[in-house]
Design a protein around this nucleic acid. Structure first.
Length: 521
RNA sequence: GGCCCCAUCGUCUAGUCAGGUCAGGACACCACCCUUUCAAGGUGGGUACACGGGUUCGAAUCCCGUUGGGGCUACCA
């Protein structure tokens, strides 16, 4: 009989109760947020890990998981471990491995132990830890906790069918659990392929207090025997993960919601292995606009795309943090240091969240505003150079770029706007908005006259150009508008932008006059 | 099918644990002001407690149920 499941609120109310399963890790200081190592009798250190599988790019969801583990380690003076889970020989690739490291570094998430930095618990790539898994599985086999399963594909199929039809499996569905030595030898002799399964208890419950969800309770009768070693000899995720978390002395496992149902299986193994069971915290998923789990088809779903898309990594980190955690007040702009300082376990969200590019972009603009001008100049100059808009760097150009950026102000919110917003100030080949051409209708004579007045100016600056333009309009008995708008379009290629006269000064007399004459033809 | 997670504006959320501003902020949107354009800024606006019961003087908040969304149920992780 299943124990009555407690309501959500009731579980939350018991959020601080020590769980009998992992009482060694209870700190008693969660009321303040993240458990403090110092309150933990001084013996257990905070060790967290991020364990991606190198089967693709670092996904936004993975990045968020990595971020929270990193933030937790940094806020507690703990250790952040990076472990590569490449037990899927088919899908894992070295390229993906490298790309994940690059993405993490770009986000600023440095690891204390892991690939390329080493550590006392290595190696940190699972394919290099085979000997450890083999040793552990040998022991489990020996103790009868694990067993060789010689099921054929047909038997697996049939069992799957029974599971769907009956809702659950019973001991009789695991015919290889208690094979006699003689039978085992026969299968062996006949060279049957086998997997190794972990036998789960037929009854009882596995419970833990989740750092995010509160008390969790799984009825063992609903837990099938699971595969720990595939027929190719490689461990499965659930198995390698437990062995490694144990050997690497991981104290807290913060991962996605999708791992909740793996947790009871893993806890069972931790206990059978006599390992300290880490604390678990399951973060909600990140969704696309259609409320489905975020993926490539939703557009920029990988960190690489943000890096290549010239986003400010701190803004992405800021946004990702807000997607899994709330400061509890109205603040939304945070530097990484501020998040480390404020992050609280109690304020982790438990609801899946839709990734909103608009808001992320807004935050990018906010972070860009905070960036020192010299840095903004560096980055946008680099973008312009890579786009071939500018070539040789000069003090004068950099100084001018700084003035342009300042003039642009809030109009410039993202470095991907560099070519669009800055080209007209530095090159004669700049983007022109074809739809804006209507402002040119009948403006030829005005532009021609304007060009002549501007050509005669000395000095040529915001004040003199404005005076000249307004004088010309008045001479012709016209308003300034019909001069201003065509002029802006002719000189910058756009009908929008900063104050025209400031822009004219920065673009320079020669270019302005040339462009006016060329357009007036 | 079984097990599990989740549920406040379009989106992210505060408020839920200790019932009592008929719900606050942000992004997005609309209007107005400002204005040489576009932004920015200022002002104002609309939009939410999934549904049904119950407990209570009082429910977004507690309880039960329903519905909806998601996850796992892989020799993926």
């Amino acid at each position: 009989m299943a124990a009555p499941s407690r309501s959500r609120a009731e579980r939350r109310a018991h959020h601080h109760d020590p769980s009998p399963l992992n009482s060694t890790l209870d700190s008693g200081s969660e009321r303040e947020g993240w458990p403090m190592a110092s309150a933990n009798s001084g013996t257990s250190k905070i060790r967290v890990r991020f364990a991606p599988s190198p089967t693709g790019t670092l996904h936004v969801g993975g990045a968020r998981t990595a971020l929270f583990n990193w933030l937790y380690a940094r806020s507690q003076g703990g250790t952040f471990v990076l472990r590569i889970e490449d037990t899927d020989q088919e899908r894992s690739s070295e390229e993906s491995h490298q790309q994940i490291l690059r993405s993490l570094r770009w986000l600023g998430l440095d690891w204390d132990e892991g690939p390329e930095v080493g550590g006392d618990h290595g190696p940190y790539v699972q394919s290099q830890r085979r000997a450890r898994y083999d040793a552990v599985i040998a022991e489990l086999l020996d103790r009868g906790i694990a067993y060789r399963d010689y099921s054929t594909a047909e038997e697996d199929e049939a069992r799957k069918l029974r599971l769907t039809e009956q809702g659950r499996l019973t001991a009789s569905d695991w015919p290889y659990r208690n094979l006699s030595e003689e039978q085992r030898r026969r299968y062996e002799a006949e060279g049957h392929a086998f997997t190794i399964r972990i036998a789960m208890p037929d009854e009882g419950h596995i419970r833990w207090t989740d750092l995010v969800h509160g008390d969790m309770d799984f009825d063992c009768a609903t837990l099938e025997d699971w595969i720990a070693v595939k027929s190719d000899g490689f461990p499965t995720y659930n198995f390698a993960c437990v062995v490694d978390d144990g050997q690497m002395e991981i104290s807290h496992v913060l991962r996605g919601d999708d791992h909740i149902s793996n947790t009871p299986r893993q806890i069972h193994l931790f206990r059978e292995l006599g390992l300290r069971v880490p604390k678990f915290g399951h973060l909600p998923m990140i969704l696309g606009p259609d409320k489905k789990r975020l993926s490539k088809r939703h557009g920029a779903a990988s960190v690489e795309e943000f890096r290549e898309g010239l986003w400010i990594s701190e803004a992405v980190v800021n946004y990702l943090a807000l997607l899994g955690w709330s400061p509890g007040n109205d603040r939304e702009f945070f530097t990484v240091e501020e998040i480390i300082k404020r992050l609280s376990l109690k304020r982790l969200n438990h609801t899946a969240a839709v990734f909103d590019y608009e808001k992320c972009r807004y935050l990018n603009g906010e972070h860009l505003k905070q960036m020192p001008l010299s840095q903004r100049v560096d980055r946008s100059w680099q973008v312009l150079a890579e786009a071939g808009v500018v070539e040789a760097d000069s003090e004068e150009d950099r100084e001018r770029l700084g003035r342009v950026l300042t003039l642009l102000g809030n109009r410039f919110r993202h470095f991907d706007q560099s070519v669009h917003h800055l080209s007209a100030y530095f090159a004669d080949d700049f983007p022109v908005d074809p739809e804006g051409a209507t402002v040119l209708e009948g403006a030829g004579p005005r532009l021609r006259a304007l060009a002549e007045r501007f050509a005669a100016l000395d000095p040529f600056d915001a004040a003199s150009t404005e005076a000249a333009l307004r004088a010309l309009a008045e001479d012709q008995g016209e308003k300034a508008g019909p001069y201003i708008h065509p002029c802006r379009y002719a000189v910058t290629g756009s009908t929008s932008g900063p104050s025209l006269f400031e822009a004219l000064e920065l673009i320079g007399q020669e270019r302005v006059v040339t462009r006016l004459r060329a357009t007036a033809v």
